[in-house]
Simulated scan of single mutants.
Amino acid sequence: MKETDLPYLKNTVSDLPLMTDDAIKDQFLSTGQIRKHKKGDLIIVAGQDSYEPSILLSGLIRVFFLNVEGVDVTNLFIFENTYYGSDFLTMKKASVCSFEALEDCVSLVLDRQVLNETLQNNIHVLLDYTRILEQSLNNKILRENALITKSATERYLDLKKTYPHIEKRVSQTHIASYLGITPVSLSRIRRVIREEN
């Protein structure tokens, strides 16, 4: 990593978990690598690539898988200042999902060994890491619950509440896939909401 990148990166990641201690932040930044991906690039291919502990600094990533019929299903959107690969940050294990850059992306890839050693030697970083995992698990449970207990309209409104500008950044096809509906159904839901308002 270039020395000139460090002040920008320190400022960008300073509020993130794992990065609250200056010495540890410096260690993660000095051993990490900046990785760039163009819109449309596959960052991780399911079954082929392992997760690398990363922070998305800019851009937007879609996580998806193919169901038994071979249909592309969006599982997650990763926005700026978010760790990704959080379920396998410390393990070198093949991903079960593919990751696609929906915009030009810049990520900070952390050194897995440095992260592991820091987690073993610093209780504060370990607690931050635990909170990241708990938040990831909580989001997964809430999403699964919503797919079972909420209507498509409720899921759409929840998504818009969580990410108010998502429709400016994500195609209707990917949003519909995430909601578990067709793009035609999503158009119908949006039309009904507009007419009601």
Rank of each mutant, 00 (worst) to 15 (best):
R143T: 00
T12G: 09
D158I: 04
Q120T: 11
R169N: 10
S14V: 07
T74L: 02
K160Y: 10
Q172E: 05
Q172V: 02
K140L: 05
L179A: 03
A46V: 02
K93W: 08
T149F: 03
K2D: 15
G85Y: 02
I181F: 02
L29V: 00
R155I: 00
T20H: 14
S86E: 01
T182W: 04
T130E: 13
I44A: 10
V170Y: 07
E117Q: 15
N122G: 12
T74C: 00
I132N: 05
S185D: 08
V68M: 12
E167M: 06
I55H: 00
I34V: 04
L147S: 10
T90A: 08
D104L: 12
T130N: 13
T130F: 11
N122Q: 13
I61Q: 06
P183S: 04
L56S: 03
Q120A: 14
C97I: 01
L127Y: 14
T130M: 11
H174D: 13
D128E: 09
E134Q: 05
M91N: 09
E117K: 15
S136G: 11
K92E: 11
N75E: 03
T31R: 13
Y8E: 06
K168N: 12
I175N: 08
F88S: 05
R188E: 11
R188A: 07
E52R: 01
L157W: 09
Y178R: 01
A46M: 07
I132S: 05
E52H: 02
S98D: 03
Q113F: 08
A101Q: 11
N197E: 10
D111G: 10
L60K: 09
P183E: 02
R155C: 00
P164N: 08
S151V: 04
D22T: 15
I55R: 00
T20M: 12
G180A: 01
E103Y: 11
T149S: 02
K160P: 10
N11S: 15
V63A: 10
S187Y: 11
I43K: 07
M1V: 13
Y8K: 08
V96I: 14
T153P: 04
D15Y: 12
T74M: 00
Y129I: 01
T90C: 04
V73E: 03
L60W: 01
E69W: 04
Q135D: 03
F77P: 11
S185K: 08
N145L: 05
I123A: 15
S136Q: 10
H124F: 15
P53I: 00
P53E: 01
R191G: 14
P7I: 02
E80D: 02
T182I: 01
D158F: 06
N11R: 15
C105N: 06
I43V: 07
S136K: 12
D87F: 03
L126H: 14
L76H: 02
T20P: 07
H165V: 06
E154T: 07
R191Y: 12
T173V: 15
R194I: 13
L9E: 05
K2P: 10
P164D: 12
L137Y: 01
H165F: 03
L110S: 04
V45F: 12
